[in-house]
């Protein structure tokens, strides 16, 4: 089953994302910020990364940039969870190598639909 890295500094969002994905049969690795995510991603085969943008220590955009630099993550889909109402963050995220985004607030159904779309 596909393995997904879910990164968010908010415990409730992390719980929700993780619970939803696990409920759909995905394997989920949780991380609390970019630094944590990067550490957990190294040496692991992942199929998808879902990351919040605004986080302490290392934000989601830097995380995506760092991950893309790792050969194993060159083509792995990476989605940003964003509430930014301007397109700015999305562009910044795309420039860093993000595949796409999920706009907050979202419900579990939307999350699953997007994940299914990406993972095929």
């Amino acid at each position: 089953m596909a393995k997904i890295l879910a990164v968010d500094d908010s415990a409730s969002m992390r719980q929700m994302v993780s619970f939803t994905l696990k409920g759909a049969g995905y394997e989920v690795v949780e991380a609390v910020d970019g630094v944590d995510a990067l550490a957990k991603a190294k040496g692991v085969k992942l199929d998808l990364v879902i990351s919040d943008v605004n986080m302490p220590n290392m934000d989601g955009i830097t995380l995506i940039k760092e991950l893309r630099a790792i050969p194993a993550f060159k083509f792995i889909p990476m989605l940003m969870l964003t509430t930014e109402s301007t397109g700015e963050k999305k562009q910044e995220g795309k420039a860093a190598g993000a595949t796409g985004w999920i706009v907050k607030p979202f419900n579990p159904e939307q999350l699953l639909a997007t994940v299914k779309k990406v993972l095929g």
């Binding site: 908010s10 969002m13 605004n54 509430t83 607030p105």
Partner: peptide, 23 residues
């Protein structure tokens, strides 16, 4: 930035969990 991030998290979460007045 720290203050912003805290507000941002509350906004994101409250929207997601249906607390629209808070969001």
């Amino acid at each position: 930035n720290t203050i912003f991030r805290a507000a941002h998290s509350i906004k994101g979460g409250s929207g997601t969990f249906g607390l629209n007045a808070v969001a």
